[in-house]
Amino acid sequence: MAQPVSIRTLAQWSRGADWRLALPHAEAEHALVWITRGQARILLDGVQRGLGVHNAVAIPAGSVFGLTPGPHCFGWVATIAPRGPIMMPDTAQVLRILEAHNQAELTGLLEAMQRETNRGLPFADEALAAHAALVTVWLRRMMIDHPMPTRPSAAARLVAAYSALVERDFRLPRVMADYAAELGVTPTHLTRACRQSAGLTAGELLVRRTLHAARLALEDGEMPVAHVAASLGFGSAAYFSRFIQHHTGKTPTALRKAARAPRIGL
């Protein structure tokens, strides 16, 4: 069962596998990402952009995103359960914090959450929730002081709508053209918008969302490969196996085995 509040580093959030963050997907919890070293790239709300030091990113639960930290990137991630007493914004936020006192305030709050997690004292969950509430107060204040543009581009709005439909229906046997028809645009127009805003084609976005779900089921779950294939709308286990091998270089069975092999030095 997920904790109402947690604090992790980016590396801990990815659990040592880049694809867990980089492939487009949605999480069940709200997340606040705070970059303190290096650079990263994020696809969020249909827009791909670079992140640097002192960028704060609020990702609402259910929002489709893909986060790729650079080789020297370090950051914190506070996750907060939705529908609870701790308030998080309903829309994604990407804020660049320039003021040293605001930077230090958030870093201090997140480090206090980390200390509380490590100490294991009584009432740690209450202390974490209190710190998280202060983090969200900080976030809402920064949203007032550093407002984002209120009107995304037409391409970004279309890609965000497409991403939401993919998140809803990626387990169904639908192709990209089906989504384009539902959005009332041609596949060519949808692909052009995706390239312009997200840096990927519409087909690539759909494939990558499916691949994230497939790897999650194979590497974390116990469901037989044929059942995983059926749950993701593949017509046959053989087609699913070819899909996995094409995108990972391994068969589904080999991918599952590799993910569960002991890691030397960890």
Results as ranks from 00 to 15, higher is better:
Asp169Asn: 07
Ala177Ser: 14
Tyr162Cys: 08
Leu165Lys: 06
Ala2Ile: 08
Pro152Ile: 04
Ala156Leu: 12
Pro187Tyr: 02
Tyr162Ala: 12
Ile97Asn: 03
Met148Gly: 03
Cys194Arg: 03
Thr188Arg: 05
Ile42Tyr: 00
Val137Ser: 12
Gly75Asp: 00
Gly203Glu: 13
His247Gln: 10
Val175Gly: 14
Ile80Arg: 04
Ile42Gln: 06
Ala40Glu: 01
Trp138Asp: 07
Pro173Phe: 03
Gly66Cys: 02
Lys250Ala: 11
Gly66Trp: 02
Met143Trp: 03
Ala92Asp: 08
Thr201Asn: 08
Thr117Ser: 15
Gln3Pro: 13
Gly66Lys: 00
Val47Met: 07
Gly108Lys: 05
Met88Lys: 00
Leu200Val: 10
Gly221Asp: 10
Gly265Pro: 07
Ile42His: 06
Ala160Ile: 09
Leu23Tyr: 11
Ala127Glu: 08
Leu172Glu: 07
Ala132Leu: 08
Pro262Trp: 09
Gly66Val: 00
Gln114Trp: 08
Pro71Trp: 10
Ala217Ile: 08
Leu110Thr: 01
Ala56Val: 14
Ile86Lys: 01
Phe74Arg: 10
Gly84Trp: 09
Phe123Asn: 14
Trp19Ala: 02
Ala56Met: 03
Gly184Leu: 01
Leu205Gly: 02
Ala164Met: 14
Trp34Met: 11
Arg171Asn: 14
Glu204Asn: 06
Ala237Asp: 14
Gln3Ile: 05
Ala214Met: 01
Met1Glu: 13
Ala261Asp: 01
Ala133Glu: 13
His247Arg: 08
Leu44Trp: 00
Pro89Val: 05
Ala259His: 04
Asn102Val: 13
Val228Cys: 00
Ala17Asn: 03
Thr91His: 10
Phe170Gln: 01
Leu110His: 02
Gly38Trp: 04
Trp13Glu: 15
Ala31Arg: 01
Leu67His: 05
Leu121Phe: 12
Ala254Phe: 05
Val185Trp: 10
Glu126Phe: 13
Ser153Gln: 06
Met87Gly: 10
His101Thr: 11
Thr251Asp: 05
Val159Gly: 00
Thr253Ser: 11
Leu10Gln: 06
Arg96Gln: 14
Ile80Ala: 09
Gly70Phe: 06
Gly70Ile: 12
Met142Thr: 13
Phe243Gly: 14
Asp90Phe: 10
Pro24Ile: 08
Pro147Asn: 01
Pro147Glu: 03
Thr150Gln: 09
Val159Glu: 00
Leu218Pro: 01
Met113Thr: 02
Leu139Phe: 14
Thr136Met: 14
Asn118Ile: 15
His131Glu: 04
Ala261Thr: 04
Arg168Lys: 09
Lys257Trp: 10
Thr107Phe: 05
Val137Ala: 13
Pro262His: 12
Glu204Thr: 07
